[in-house]
Design a protein around this nucleic acid. Structure first.
Length: 779
DNA sequence: GGGCCTCAAGTTTTT
DNA sequence: CTTGAGGCCC
């Protein structure tokens, strides 16, 4: 039995208010996860609720995992049967059971953003849209926000009548959905939307889940979008025991459809809702908290609350300005180095920044200074080429309906199957209403393929053989097999020795993940399956794999940092134009700036003991040098909690107090690009819209052309091997070609590396081609 | 068929 | 600066 006396009165109230809708407004570091987990324990122990009837929803797998762990520790019996998972995996779990009534089969695949892009490219090509006017990126963004609002392609199409551009986008949306369905695939947004749709069209299914989940808890509620709101609204409609926990000040996902109204209007959406505030912070020092409060109070339209703490005041927040981003990064690295040398652990530190692009420099400097780090985000592990290749194999083996996956690997490694052949198979598949892979299986019946059919057959045989191995192979072994049997590994090494090594390591890592997956289900109720593994992989973010135990500095974006805490935090790149970003500064919508401010608030409140803000006067962004002022957010921190340690500037930047530099070296007076003069004129002429001064993009001529001769020889060698010394046909001979049929040779000219052959084809007309590739046969 | 080169475009933030 | 897509040449 647990002791609930360790909770403070407000937390305790949140735990004991079990019936009806409850909104817990939980400030940063106020122990909300603690309250949530204890609430689950309380429901079971004190209220006799069956664990089976409890569900907890989070946004990230990491959060889910953490909660799961804490619940397991707290609840003696039946913790397994509580559903603790993310919105997305919850929906997948439900859809895997019931999606058939929506016309998909239950082994659907989940498309990530790369897949979406590929698919949309195909859609736009098919519809013959002008790629200048209709960018797949922006169309996908539109579709995504429509889905967040539960607006289907049909709805959108109906409401766009009359607006030309919109109805074209609607066309794309319709076609995109049609393609998804054909591929038996769902994108991220579909997972939520289809589940809501399922509940709407199928009341019995809804009723089943309503009965099952009598107590629902939602973490990070401020980040829910309309679709997610509907989902929990539907699920909780019967018993109305819905407890949401969130902080409107930490709502940072508006760009992704998060609807802040969900939390601001909770009480009117769920009449009779009780509101409980957790305002005592257990995480940060007084100074850090006061700094955070000072910043966030500049936002209008928030639920009024003030965080307080009994923690000690601590040391002041520090602000340092450097001349260049280069020095900023180095100073941070040096700073960490010093502190570790005098006893701190690497894992005490996190460096947070606004954009992923900033990580490069920081990484570089960490390497220079010998600081072990973990980079979270950036290029996702699962987006790496080699990983996607292997996963595409697994998907094809598993599903066979996923055209994108099959098309990706049909010629990887090279099997001599080119775009033309793939195009023909696609045409055939389309005409016969089958999947791409099915069409491959029927390659012999596609007349247009000609000799290519043999190659396709080889590919199909390989896949089929992998399939049959599935029965007695582990997923890890299967991956191993794919790499060796297909020659994938060989091709990698042939291409680039050094790069191949890291690639193979990554594949090794994927294997480890597969093994871990299989072990995690070893004695659970469900058996590990290939589909299960692919699904898990599709739904993980990078933060999820962060190991707490590692002794490394953590580098990540402010967004990724939400929900985490670190003893010492650096916020790098505190500059107007970067953070807050220019988009938000120039926007007509004041809420954009407010969202950035909330992001800043999130960043500040990650710190437990120490917070250091840094910025650079000069920074390269998109290949151009920008001169920037310190972030306005720095100025919003009440001076009494802030210790400014500006370094002296070679730029003598207007009006900023200059103090001697007390820490962090930097490499002194390095200069880049423009002289100081222009540097300080620009920020002065602040006109609309505000834009920091930008140096003309540095244009360098051809870099090094001296090595071309060397390359030539090398290439020449390779080609000369393949060059035929003589041909089996001559001028006037009749020849046949796989594509063009029969014809007469009119001319042959020998060139450096190949023979150029001109042929008059009976049907296809006169063509000129290279002998090596044409593969003409005498007849 | 495909490698290599040139040119253009693009940048928040992510389940 | 870095990635992507199209064109050219072997």
């Amino acid at each position: 039995m647990n002791n609930y006396d360790t909770l403070n009165p407000m937390q305790r109230l949140a735990v004991e208010t079990t019936e009806g809708p409850v909104l817990v407004l939980a400030g940063a570091g106020s122990g909300k996860t603690r309250a949530l987990t204890h609430r689950i324990a309380y429901l079971i122990e004190e209220c006799g609720v069956n664990p089976w009837n409890i569900m907890a929803l989070t946004f990230t797998n990491k959060a889910a995992g953490e909660m799961r762990e804490r619940v397991d520790n707290l609840v003696e019996f039946g913790a397994d049967s509580i559903w603790v998972s993310t919105f997305h995996s919850t929906c997948v779990r439900i859809l895997r059971r019931h999606i058939e009534c929506l016309g998909y089969s239950t082994n659907f695949t989940i498309y990530d953003s790369d897949d979406q892009k590929t698919m949309m490219r195909q859609v736009l090509k098919k519809l013959d849209f002008d790629p200048k006017q209709y960018k797949e990126r922006s169309i996908l963004a539109t579709i995504s926000s429509l889905k967040d609002e539960l607006i289907s392609a049909e709805d959108f199409s109906a409401r766009s009548a009359g607006d030309f551009r919109q109805s074209r986008i609607a066309e794309a949306y319709l076609e995109y959905q049609a393609q998804l369905r054909k591929n038996n695939a769902l994108d991220f947004d579909d997972l939520i939307m289809k589940t809501v749709e399922l509940f709407r069209v199928n009341p019995e299914v809804l009723d089943y889940y309503q009965e099952r989940f009598r107590y629902i808890m939602v973490d990070e509620y401020q980040d829910t979008n309309t679709a997610q709101f509907r989902l929990i609204e539907l699920l909780s409609a019967k018993y109305k025991n819905l407890c949401v926990v969130g902080d409107d000040d930490q709502s940072i996902y508006k760009f992704r459809g998060a609807n802040i109204e969900n939390i601001l209007e909770f009480e009117s959406a769920f009449p009779g809702a009780k509101v409980i505030r957790l305002e005592q912070n257990y995480r940060s020092t007084g100074n850090i908290l006061n700094a955070a409060n000072g910043v966030i109070k500049n936002n209008a339209g928030r639920k009024d609350k003030t965080l307080w703490t009994e923690n000690e005041e601590g040391i002041p927040v520090v602000f340092r300005q450097y001349d260049t981003a280069y020095e900023e990064a180095d100073a941070i690295a040096v700073d960490i180095r010093d502190r570790v040398d005098s006893g701190a652990a690497y894992s005490d530190f996190a460096v947070l920044y606004r954009t992923n692009a900033q990580s490069r420099l920081l990484e570089e400097k960490c390497v220079n200074r010998g600081i072990p780090y973990r980079l979270v985000g950036g290029v996702n592990f699962y987006q790496r080429k080699e990983i996607k290749d292997i996963l595409s194999y697994l998907k094809t083996i598993d599903n066979g309906l996923d055209d994108l996956a099959a098309q990706r690997i049909i010629n990887v490694p090279k099997r001599g199957i080119g775009a033309t052949t793939i195009g023909r198979i696609m045409v055939y598949a389309e005409a016969n209403d089958m999947s791409f892979y099915e069409a491959c299986k029927a390659a012999d019946r596609i007349p247009s393929l000609g000799k290519a059919a043999g190659k396709i057959r080889g590919f199909v045989t390989q896949i089929q053989s992998f399939r049959s191995k599935l029965a007695y192979y582990s997923i890890g072994d299967l991956i191993e097999d794919i790499v060796t049997e297909t020659g994938y590994g060989e091709e990698l090494s042939a291409d680039d020795e050094v790069a191949a090594e890291t690639r193979l390591e990554n594949i090794e890592e994927l294997k480890n993940k597969a093994v871990a997956y299989e072990e995690s289900l070893e004695d659970g109720e469900e058996a590990p399956t290939l589909s299960g593994f692919l699904e898990e992989v599709a739904l993980v973010a990078d933060v999820d794999s962060m190991e707490d135990s590692e002794n490394r500095v953590v580098l990540m974006t402010l967004h990724s940092a939400k929900g985490l805490e670190f003893p010492r935090v650096y916020l790098a790149g505190m500059e107007d134009g970067l953070f807050p970003g220019m988009m938000s500064i120039n926007s007509d919508d004041p809420d954009e700036l407010e969202e950035e401010r909330r992001l800043c608030y999130v960043g500040i409140t990650r710190a437990q003991k120490e917070l250091i803000l840094t910025c650079a006067r000069q920074r390269m962004v998109n290949g151009e040098t920008r001169f920037q002022k310190p972030s306005r957010f720095v100025g919003e921190i009440p001076p009494m909690y802030l210790h400014r340690q500006e370094t002296p500037s070679m730029f003598s930047f207007g009006g900023v107090p200059v103090k001697p530099m007390s820490t962090g070296g930097g490499s002194g007076f390095r200069t880049f690009g423009r002289p100081a003069q222009e540097a300080f004129e620009l920020p002065k002429k602040e006109k609309e819209p505000y834009r920091p001064w930008t140096a003309p993009a540095a244009r360098y001529g051809k870099a090094i052309s001296g090595d071309s001769g060397l390359k030539e020889t090398y290439i020449g060698k390779q080609f000369s091997v393949s060059k035929a010394t003589s041909l089996s046909y001559g001028v006037g001979d009749r020849v046949s070609h796989v594509k063009f049929g029969e014809g007469t040779v009119v001319d042959i000219t020998e060139q450096k590396k190949d023979f150029e052959v001109t042929v008059d084809f009976d049907k296809a007309g006169r063509k000129r081609m290279y002998a090596t590739f044409a593969k003409l046969k005498r007849c």
